[in-house]
Simulated scan of single mutants.
Amino acid sequence: MAVFPAEDARLHLKRHLPAVGGLTRPEKWHITLAFLGEVPDEGTDHAAGVLDDVPPPGPITLRLAGGGRFGTVLWAGLAGDVEPLEAFREDVRSALVGAGFAVDGRPFRPHLTVSYRFDRGVQQALAGYAGPSWPVTEFALVQSTAGEYHRLRAWPAGSAEGR
């Protein structure tokens, strides 16, 4: 389950980063809410059914801001409505675990991976970065195949009335 930033937010970040090798492609940039690992085809339908029952969080606005690293991995951080995103992520995780899925149990540190190769210039660019805000309109169930991401299903973020 993931959130994909709006195109203008991705392009803004791309323009802010130095042109170096090793950056992941902006169309792949996303914030992972729950990582399931290998799931057979019938399992994705089951996961989608479980996610159908998770109430949407309502309107959330995010922006990419700051950054950091996990070893050699460089990432952009998040600002904005991070608390409701974290609460929604916990609802998603709990629902999937309750349905028998093995969800990555590490603490949630919302981020967007921009490179798997450390580069000091990229790290410095991310440190002071503050991108434009965007409204989260949907959450997507994503499958990774041969390094490409495919949106299998999406759910609307919800409205203020749905909270």
Rank of each mutant, 00 (worst) to 15 (best):
G68E: 05
G100L: 14
A157K: 00
G80S: 09
G43Y: 07
A79R: 03
F35H: 02
L23F: 00
A160M: 11
V122N: 04
L152H: 03
A125E: 01
P107D: 13
F4M: 01
E90L: 13
Q143E: 14
G121C: 02
D91S: 15
G158A: 08
G21P: 04
W75E: 00
G22S: 05
G21E: 09
P18C: 01
A130F: 06
V122C: 00
S115M: 02
S144C: 04
K14E: 09
F88M: 07
D53F: 11
V54P: 05
W29F: 05
E86H: 13
F101M: 08
G67S: 03
L112M: 13
G158S: 06
I31Q: 04
L141H: 06
A99E: 08
A130Y: 05
H12I: 06
R117P: 04
G68T: 09
P5F: 07
V92T: 07
G21D: 07
G131K: 01
F108K: 02
G67W: 04
Y149T: 01
T72P: 10
G105D: 15
P84M: 09
G158T: 11
D52A: 14
L11H: 10
G49E: 14
V114G: 04
K14Y: 11
V54I: 07
E138C: 06
A140T: 14
T113F: 07
T72A: 15
R25I: 03
F118M: 01
P57V: 10
P135S: 10
Q143S: 13
E86Y: 15
D52F: 14
W134S: 02
P107L: 10
L11A: 12
E42Q: 11
G58P: 13
V92H: 10
G131N: 03
A125K: 02
R89I: 13
